[in-house]
Amino acid sequence: MEEKYKVQVTDLHKSYDGVHEVIKGANLNVLPSEVVCIIGPSGSGKSTFLRCINKLEEFQKGHILVDGADLADPKADINKIRENIGMVFQHFNLFPNMTVLENITLAPVELGKEDKETAIKEAHKYLQMVNMDDKADVKPTTLSGGQQQRVAIARALAMKPDVMLFDEPTSALDPEMVGDVLNVMKKLAQEGMTMIVVTHEMGFAKQVADKVAFFYGGVIKELGTPEDIFDHPQEEETKNFLNKVLNI
């Protein structure tokens, strides 16, 4: 029954220098339309773990299956696999040399997914969804952080991916901008997108996640529903972490 998972990570090991492992045998299974939030202390390896899932980071051991395709297979066409995995970064990483619209149409047109006309039409659709259509023709540098992040989400969606990865999408935003971005993500979750979100927003995790994974010391220490993790944590490390972040 392996195919029932959208993303399946098995015994993942990763080190930068071949000696010290940052990820020490992590496992995670994600069902279609499931939203998994990964929480955990800084430096625990949760971002690195996420970046392995579209192979922005190489890993040395283990398997990652996305829609059945194994990223560990040297023959796997990584570009093709990535087309199916949208990624949203902490620092948005919009292309400053292009307009908002061009940022969104670049990949579908360059990769031959859509002709230019269709791509533009589609781009406006996604911009409307993130409430940014009025800024289609401006350069990203003129936008606020929250606006840029919403454009970045639209850019990732334009490739019509099956899975979306979010790497601390609100950490670089001013507090008043966070809500807009989280709302867009909520909408996505409601529409049935499979999402893996590395986040410090405990409220969002509680409210939106189907599963919460507590990442600690290079492995997923504890995994469960938001109630399991936030109300009845089993592991000592989970309790300590939640105590620190929730009781400020």
């Binding site: 922005l56 990535r82 040399n97 670049l106 990769l111």
Partner: peptide
């Protein structure tokens, strides 16, 4: 910025397409 590479590659753009369309125009400037 290395983030430009990552964003372009994460969309599925191959290495030289990412270089030519995204990185090079910024680099030339």
């Amino acid at each position: 910025d290395v983030g430009q590479w990552e964003a372009a590659r994460s969309l599925g753009l191959p290495y030289y397409k990412a270089l030519w369309k995204v990185v090079a125009p910024q680099g030339f400037k």
